[in-house]
Measured scan of single mutants.
Amino acid sequence: IRCIGVSNRDFVEGMSGGTWVDVVLEHGGCVTVMAQDKPTVDIELVTTTVSNMAEVRSYCYEASISDMASDSRCPTQGEAYLDKQSDTQYVCKRTLVDRGWGNGCGLFGKGSLVTCAKFTCSKKMTGKSIQPENLEYRIMLSVHGSQHSGMIVNDTGYETDENRAKVEVTPNSPRAEATLGGFGSLGLDCEPRTGLDFSDLYYLTMNNKHWLVHKEWFHDIPLPWHAGADTGTPHWNNKEALVEFKDAHAKRQTVVVLGSQEGAVHTALAGALEAEMDGAKGKLFSGHLKCRLKMDKLRLKGVSYSLCTAAFTFTKVPAETLHGTVTVEVQYAGTDGPCKIPVQMAVDMQTLTPVGRLITANPVITESTENSKMMLELDPPFGDSYIVIGVGDKKITHHWHRSGSTIGKAFEATVRGAKRMAVLGDTAWDFGSVGGVFNSLGKGIHQIFGAAFKSLFGGMSWFSQILIGTLLVWLGLNTKNGSISLTCLALGGVMIFLSTAVSA
């Protein structure tokens, strides 16, 4: 259960009878995928790494000078000259100064003066180019299975845990398959586009800190620079940016070097996208990844198990997540596992009318040892309800109150669905055939309105939902006002479609 501690969480529900669903994975976010007769899966884009970055340009932001020398000439005696002028490691300046009897010249006039100092770069920052084909995306998957609280967001041991898996995709191999043991396998067909235009970005490294910066900004930095990788004795261009020549006297000129420019660069980098280094690879934390999940090989585990009949206890007080759902960790005293956990939410304890829904599909106890633990997640209705676990006299209950409203949740879900469709863009549509167009249209309606429909009408039977949709269509056909007619027709059509397409 990876997503319960992530604030940016998206719930995606598969269409009834569908074998695939489109998701948008982004750094700092987590996606929970639910479908009829399929286990619930949490998917998170953990890291995006980039390798084989080529150094484009380096800037010196802290330097020192040494070996200063000057040469001067009297008027009419030609130009002052130093051998160091031809050495690229030196920074030199030529000027004219007033000369006369007082400073060793027989004539009054302008004399030539040249001053040089050896330039040494102490600290530099480097910009590297990123090729999209060198990106690698690491995705962690977790099935809502027989897990306890100690396994949440624990990325170790996934090789031997059938509840978890790690997959890596690249532009050259965008397809992967996550093996989930008894739950089958989940196929991923990803489109490795981060949403960032790397043709316009460089990877900047300064003092063990890293950013993504725009090329134009990078090339306009007014500091000494050299092109390409460091060859040991780089040729620094624009050395004068960190060196200041003071007022010249008759035979000498003082040279000083400016202080470190790291603070000024940090100020200019305010708002830039931060990154990290992992050995020789860069780690990015921006952008998104679009994936199509193929769920035809994914299956529920323990459908044929019998119900657990022994007593359950709450190991922890049920807690609310950031998303309005409830996490419950229970301990089973029996030894008759594997068995299914009898769990439901009810409005009252007399009729036990089921409300809400299970995020953890078909929760089971897989071990036959005593005191096995299991964590599950529920989506309670707004208002008061009861969490009921167990059967008969051994069942345990917990009162729950959820604040908020169904309308607010439906609106929030619609906005999130619209954002998801905007990110998917043209990849969500198939114009290759008439059937493809209608299929894409259905998927689009489901992406945007599916979660809201589930919130508003999830407790009704599909037949009642179709009746309401048919009534809206009838009202649309018999209303003389054009805008009201079109609105009723659209709402009725969407409702009829979703009542037959969205899983219960």
Rank of each mutant, 00 (worst) to 15 (best):
I1S: 00
R2Q: 09
I4T: 11
G5N: 04
N8F: 05
R9E: 09
R9H: 06
F11S: 10
G14Y: 06
S16G: 01
H27F: 04
H27T: 13
G28M: 05
G29K: 00
V31S: 14
V31W: 07
V41H: 03
T48G: 03
S51L: 06
N52R: 01
Y59P: 02
Y61N: 10
M68A: 09
M68Q: 04
S70G: 03
P75M: 11
G78S: 09
A80R: 05
L82G: 02
D87P: 00
Y90N: 13
Y90S: 08
V91R: 00
R94Y: 09
R94C: 08
W101I: 04
G104C: 04
G106C: 02
G106P: 02
T115N: 06
F119N: 08
F119K: 06
F119Q: 08
S122V: 15
M125Q: 04
M125A: 02
T126S: 13
Q131M: 10
P132G: 00
N134L: 03
S142T: 14
I152C: 03
V153M: 08
G157L: 01
A165E: 13
A165R: 15
K166V: 00
K166L: 08
V167D: 05
P171N: 10
P171M: 11
P171W: 10
N172V: 03
S173F: 05
A176E: 11
G184L: 02
D189R: 02
E191N: 09
L196W: 02
L196T: 11
D197S: 04
S199P: 03
T205W: 05
W211V: 05
W211Q: 09
H214C: 07
K215M: 09
I221C: 04
L223A: 08
P224Q: 08
W225N: 10
W225E: 05
H226D: 08
H226E: 02
P234A: 12
K246T: 10
D247T: 09
D247Y: 04
A248Y: 05
Q253A: 07
Q261A: 08
V265G: 12
A272I: 08
A272Q: 12
E274Y: 07
D278K: 13
D278I: 15
L284S: 01
R292W: 01
L293M: 07
L293I: 15
V303I: 13
S306A: 15
F312Q: 08
K316S: 00
K316Q: 08
P318N: 08
T321W: 11
T321I: 10
T321A: 12
Q331N: 10
T335W: 13
T335L: 13
K340S: 01
I341A: 08
M345R: 00
A346N: 03
V347R: 08
T351R: 15
L352M: 10
T353P: 00
P354R: 15
V355I: 15
G356F: 08
L358P: 12
I359L: 03
P363E: 06
V364F: 15
E367K: 11
K373D: 01
M375W: 07
F382D: 06
F382S: 08
Y386P: 00
I389Q: 11
G390Q: 05
I407W: 11
F411H: 07
T414F: 09
R416P: 08
K419N: 00
M421P: 05
D426P: 12
A428G: 00
W429A: 02
D430F: 07
G432T: 15
S433L: 11
S433V: 00
G435I: 01
G435P: 00
F438V: 11
S440H: 09
S440C: 10
K443I: 12
I445G: 00
Q447T: 01
Q447W: 08
I448F: 03
A452Y: 12
F453H: 13
G458I: 06
S461V: 01
W462S: 08
F463T: 00
S464I: 03
Q465H: 11
L472P: 09
L472R: 00
L472G: 02
W474P: 05
G476A: 14
K480T: 15
G482I: 08
G482Y: 12
L486E: 05
L486F: 15
L491R: 09
L491H: 12
G492C: 03
G493H: 06
V494L: 15
I496E: 05
S503K: 07
A504W: 13
